[in-house]
């Protein structure tokens, strides 16, 4: 039987936001790389401690909204000027002030829905996905730092002792599908 490729990981489990945050900062100062950190709620300052850049989703939203605006202008222009121009009370066909509400709505609709889909795609979330790691009470009140132990310059013993020093309540070695 061929086994699926696996990734070896080390889990350091914490029980409070504060110890997790100081631990993450200490690790970063030592230059130890994280695979990821898992928390039950967004911990402010953790992205900084992990060295993550701010999300680019807002830029995406701008582009998606601009696309919505373009679609609404093209749609209304095509319908009213090219496909089926109708004389309504002798008013001009290109009655652009009347098109503003639909332009606005489609801008918002495209911006919102496409950003949501981009978020799901970027985070690889979809129905039927299994959580990458599962630790009891992870989504309740546990905070977990995960290291990829398979990497070249990873020093297992040093990391374990650092985790202990920083107040990890539990340390587990585990494997996840790569």
């Amino acid at each position: 039987m061929i086994s699926a490729p696996v990734k070896k990981i080390l889990l350091g489990i914490f029980d409070s936001e504060k110890t997790l945050l100081t631990a993450a900062k200490n690790f970063r100062e030592k230059g130890v790389k994280f695979f990821d950190i898992y928390t039950p709620y967004p911990v402010h300052g953790l992205d900084h401690a992990m060295g993550l850049a701010p999300s680019r989703l807002p830029q995406f939203t701008f582009a998606a909204g601009a696309l919505g605006l373009l679609v609404s202008i093209l749609l209304q222009g095509y319908v009213n000027l090219i496909s089926w121009p109708m004389n309504i009370g002798g008013k001009p066909n290109n009655a652009w002030p009347a098109f503003v509400p639909v332009c606005f709505e489609l801008t918002v609709l495209f911006g919102g829905v496409l950003t949501f889909l981009a978020f799901l795609a970027r985070c690889k979330l979809f129905p039927g996905k299994r959580p990458v790691i599962s630790v009891p009470r992870l989504t309740d009140d546990r905070f977990v730092i995960v290291f990829a132990t398979g990497e070249k310059d990873f020093k297992l013993e040093e990391t374990v002792s650092l985790l202990k020093q920083n107040g990890a309540m539990e340390i587990i070695e585990n494997e996840v599908p790569a």
């Binding site: 990821d36 928390t39 911990v43 979330l125």
Partner: peptide, 15 residues
């Protein structure tokens, strides 16, 4: 959707 509380996901989630 397989949510596991990864901090990378949280960051984008807040955004």
């Amino acid at each position: 959707l397989g949510w596991d509380g990864s901090n990378r996901t949280w960051l984008r989630y807040e955004s």
